[in-house]
């Protein structure tokens, strides 16, 4: 063992300083800094890159975790997609998050695991709510297996549709809301939509088309002129052409011929003398006869039977009558 003395240390330091003072090596103050040691050269870049990677990883973890919590999963696994299809008959159609917690332990998010570890009660409640989601599936459009299985088809069964005078609790239930517990599947998934919209019972009976007081103004969406076979009608209200010919002496001073249509003494045409929709067309006028063609308005005659056609001039003078069977 050899111990260095104070004198030896002093001498070494002195020699070291003298040798150092003879160094002529100097830096250039204006020279651009050049670092050779890789760590020194890339130290800032390495720290920045490491920080970027760390932030990226944390962001991904948070994004995936909170994405699952907010029921906005980035990807839907094939098994999950199968579970949420309407054709699935599995009961308790949990949303993807609840499915993650219930039967896919391997796909649990990190925050979910942490939450389950530190708050087991909360996780149990979550599981219970998941079960409630199965039993209260009336509000979940994706669930058809149990719970509301008897209710949902009843809405689609016409025989059970309540009338307006007999309201039912079932029909008055509000439609399922997407924000309720059982319906928290992604709204962009088309298969989670209800099969049929909730039935709204009619409040007023729809009048049959044949009772329409204004036959010339039928509704757009119905064909009121169609006759039921039970009533014996086969006509569809097609126009009826009536050809008449009368003495030309009656046509003196006549500029227009009009027609009134009667059915069993009931006027079914227009009461207006000058209704141009009931104006007949003068086909030919000779010294003896005048030929007139009258075409009933579309839909005026829709029932088979005898009809009386009364022609008159512009002044209301009767020119001729003609009775014919239309059918």
């Amino acid at each position: 063992m050899k111990k260095i003395s104070d004198e030896r240390l002093e001498k070494m330091l002195t020699n070291y300083c003298e040798a150092d003072s003879q160094q002529t090596f100097t830096f250039d103050p204006e020279r651009k800094r050049e670092k050779i040691i890789p760590f020194v050269r890339f130290r800032k870049q390495l720290i920045a890159a490491a920080s970027l990677v760390l932030v990226s990883v944390l962001s991904l973890i948070i994004y995936f975790s909170f994405g699952n919590i907010n029921n906005t999963p980035l990807t839907v696994a094939p098994s999950q997609h199968k579970l949420i299809t309407p054709s699935s008959t599995e009961g308790g159609g949990d949303d993807p998050d609840q499915q993650d917690g219930a039967d896919q332990n391997g796909s649990k998010s990190i925050l979910q695991r942490i939450r389950d570890f530190f708050f087991p009660e909360a996780s149990e409640e979550s599981g219970a709510s998941s079960e409630r989601g199965g039993s209260s599936a009336a509000v979940s459009p994706t669930e058809q297996g149990n719970g509301s299985a008897g209710r949902s088809p009843s809405r689609r069964n016409p025989s059970t549709i309540p009338s307006a005078t007999q309201p039912s609790d079932q029909s008055l239930d509000p439609p399922p809301k997407a924000t309720e517990a059982g319906a928290s599947t992604p709204i962009t998934e088309p298969t989670t939509e209800p099969d049929t919209p909730p039935y709204v019972p009619p409040t007023e009976p729809i009048d049959p088309p044949w009772n329409d007081p204004e036959p010339t103004d039928p509704p757009d969406d119905e064909d009121p002129w169609s006759i039921l076979p039970s009533e014996g009608g086969v006509m569809t209200g097609a126009p009826v052409e009536v050809y008449v010919r009368f003495d030309s002496s009656l046509m003196a001073g006549v500029t227009g011929v009009y027609c009134k249509v009667y059915s069993y003494d009931n006027l079914i045409g227009s009461s207006d003398l000058y209704d141009r929709s009931h104006q007949a067309e003068i086909l030919d006028t000779s010294s003896q006869y005048t030929e007139v063609l009258y075409e009933t308005p579309d839909g005026l005659i829709f029932r088979p039977g005898f009809y009386t056609f009364v022609f008159y001039d512009q002044n209301g003078n009767e020119l001729a009558q003609w009775q014919d069977y239309c059918g």
Binding site: F25, T26, F27
Partner: peptide, 11 residues
């Protein structure tokens, strides 16, 4: 003073 400062910084 650059040579002196250089050695000083090196030390």
């Amino acid at each position: 003073y650059s040579p002196q400062l250089t050695r000083f910084c090196m030390k």
